[in-house]
C-alpha cells in the first residue's frame, strides 16, 4: 500500500512536470531554464490529473488511481518527444478535408421523429429527456 502511494505520487509528479514542461513550448524547441519547477509532492486534491478528470467528468476510484496515474504519466512523457521538432513556419493541419464551405441551404427538410430519438434515451418523460432535478434544491 505504501509502495502504491509512493508510485502514485511519483506518477502525478511526472504529470505535473510534463504539463509544466510542455507549457513552455511555442514554435521553437526550448532548451532554456524557463520551465517552472514541478511540485515536489503534488496535493492529491489539486493535481493536473485531477483537473483532467474533472474536465472529462470522470472519477477514478482510489484503488485504481496509482495505476491510472502511472499510465497517464508514461503516455504524456511519450508525447514530449514532439518538443524536439522545430515547427516554426508550419500551419496547423486541423483536417485533411479539402472542403472549405459545406454549409447547406437553410431549408426545412425531413428529420427523425422526436419519439424515435427519445426511444434511445435512458429516461424520457412527456416528450423530453429526463434528468435529475437541478433547480430547487430537493430532488
Amino acid at each position: 500500500m505504501e509502495n502504491s502511494c509512493a508510485d502514485a505520487a511519483r506518477a502525478e509528479a511526472a504529470i505535473e512536470r510534463c504539463g509544466a514542461t510542455l507549457r513552455g513550448v511555442s514554435d521553437t524547441p526550448r532548451n532554456d531554464a524557463r520551465e517552472p519547477a514541478a511540485p515536489a509532492s503534488p496535493s492529491p486534491a489539486s493535481t493536473a490529473l485531477d483537473q483532467a478528470l474533472r474536465l472529462a467528468r470522470l472519477h477514478v476510484p482510489e484503488q485504481e488511481r496509482a495505476g491510472f496515474a502511472r499510465d497517464f504519466a508514461r503516455v504524456l512523457e511519450s508525447f514530449a518527444q514532439l518538443r524536439e521538432l522545430d515547427v516554426s513556419g508550419l500551419e496547423p493541419l486541423r483536417s485533411p478535408s479539402t472542403r472549405v464551405d459545406s454549409v447547406r441551404d437553410d431549408r426545412l427538410q425531413p428529420s427523425l421523429e422526436r419519439d424515435t430519438l427519445l426511444a434511445g434515451a435512458p429516461r424520457a418523460e412527456d416528450g423530453f429527456f429526463s434528468v435529475p432535478k437541478t433547480i430547487g434544491g430537493e430532488r
Binding site: 507549457r23 513550448v25 483537473q51 483532467a52 478528470l53 497517464f72 508550419l90 500551419e91 493541419l93
Partner: peptide
C-alpha cells in the same frame, strides 16, 4: 484514459503547447 488525455491536452494553458504543436507536426 483517452478522454482524460484529450481533456488534458486541450485544457487552458496546454492547448497551444500540446494540441496546436501536434497539429503543426501533423503538417
Amino acid at each position: 484514459r483517452r478522454v482524460a488525455l484529450g481533456s488534458f491536452v486541450l485544457s487552458s494553458g496546454y492547448y497551444e503547447a500540446w494540441y496546436v504543436h501536434a497539429l503543426k507536426v501533423r503538417r
